[in-house]
C-alpha cells in the first residue's frame, strides 16, 4: 500500500479522480480516500506540520503499516528561485524551520524530477527567503511521524511549485495546477503501484509452522534450544536439506517425541552433528 499525505483536498484531487478513490467514513480528524485494489490511500490532513504529523500517526496506528508500504507527501510549495508554476520537485533534504532540525529521506529510485531541499515552516513563506529552496508547511511533520514505521527509504516528498511567497493561488487555481502536475507525477506513481499490486506477502505455510511448533514441544525445548532448533531448520531449508523426512522417520520409530528435556537436548545435538 502507498500512503500519500496531502494537506488539501485540491492537492489530492488528481489522485482521487484518477484512481477513483473512495472516502472512508470512519476517520474524523482527517479525510481518508482509498482504493485497496490498487493499493493506494490518500490522507488529507489539513495545513501545517503538526496536522500532517498527527494524521500520519493516527493512520499508522489504525491502519497498520506493512513491511513494504510507502509513505509519500505530495503537495504545493513556494519557491525562492526561478521555476515555472507547476514544476515538480523531489525533496532530498527537509529543513524544519522552527527547530532547525534537518532530515534526509533516502532517494533510492530513478525518478524524472529535479531535486531540491525544502524548508518546512509554520506559516506560508513571505519576505526575503534564502535563495534556491522550496518552502512548504508539512514535509518535516510527515517525516518525523513516519520515520519509525517507514524508515528514510520508504518515504518520498514531492512538491509542486505554486507560488513565490507573494500570495498563494486560490482553491480552483491550486487544483488546476496540481491536476496538471499530476500528469508528471502519475506515471512515476504508477510504476510503484504496479509493483505493489503483484507483491503479495508469502506467509509461511500454516502447516509448516505447526509442524515446527510440534517439534519444539516434542523436544521439550528451552528458549535457547528453541532458537537453536529454528536456526537449524532455517539453514536446512535454505540449503535444500530435507530434515523433515528424517524426523518423521524418528516419529515413526518412536524416537520422537522425547521423554524429557535432557533427551531433547541430546536429540538436538545429534541432529546438528549429523548435518555437517
Amino acid at each position: 500500500m502507498i500512503h500519500i499525505v496531502c494537506a488539501l483536498y485540491q492537492e489530492a484531487h488528481f489522485l482521487i479522480t484518477h484512481y477513483q478513490l473512495k472516502k472512508r467514513n470512519d476517520f474524523h480528524r482527517l479525510q481518508v480516500f482509498e482504493n485497496t485494489e490498487r493499493g493506494l490511500r490518500v490522507l488529507v490532513t489539513g495545513v501545517g506540520m503538526l496536522r500532517a504529523a498527527m494524521a500520519v500517526s493516527i493512520a499508522t496506528e489504525r491502519l497498520k503499516v506493512a513491511e513494504h508500504d510507502l509513505l509519500w507527501n505530495i503537495g504545493s510549495c513556494a519557491a525562492s528561485f526561478e521555476a515555472s508554476p507547476g514544476t515538480v520537485f523531489l525533496c532530498n533534504k527537509l529543513i524544519e524551520e522552527p527547530t532547525g532540525c534537518t532530515f534526509y529521506p533516502d532517494i533510492l529510485y530513478r525518478h524524472p524530477f529535479e531535486e531540491r531541499a525544502v524548508v518546512s515552516r509554520m506559516t506560508p513563506m513571505t519576505g526575503e527567503p534564502e535563495p534556491g529552496l522550496l518552502y512548504d508547511m508539512e514535509a518535516s511533520g510527515v517525516y518525523q511521524a513516519g520515520i519509525s514505521d517507514y524508515g528514510p527509504h520508504r518515504m518520498l516528498f514531492i512538491k509542486v511549485v505554486s507560488d513565490y511567497g507573494k500570495g498563494t493561488p486560490d482553491a480552483t487555481a491550486l487544483q488546476c495546477l496540481m491536476d496538471e502536475a499530476g500528469e508528471t507525477i502519475l506515471p512515476f506513481l504508477e510504476r510503484f503501484l504496479s509493483f505493489h499490486a503483484g507483491q503479495e506477502q508469502s506467509a509461511t505455510g500454516q502447516t509448516e509452522e505447526e509442524w515446527e511448533q510440534r517439534l519444539v514441544r516434542d523436544l521439550h525445548c528451552s528458549v535457547t534450544m528453541e532458537h537453536e532448533l529454528m536456526q537449524l531448520l532455517r539453514y536446512c531449508a535454505l540449503a535444500d536439506r530435507n530434515v523433515r523426512d528424517e524426523l518423521e522417520r524418528d516419529y515413526g520409530q518412536g524416537v520422537l517425541p522425547c521423554r524429557s528435556k535432557r533427551e531433547g537436548k541430546q536429540y538436538l545435538e545429534k541432529l546438528k552433528a549429523g548435518l555437517f
Binding site: 533516502d106 533510492l108 520515520i147 524508515g151 527509504h153
Partner: peptide, 16 residues
Amino acid sequence: DVFCRQKQDYGLQQRS
C-alpha cells in the same frame, strides 16, 4: 545526520 538515521535499509541502499 545521514549515516546514522534510524530504520535504514542496508540492502536497498547498496543498490543505490
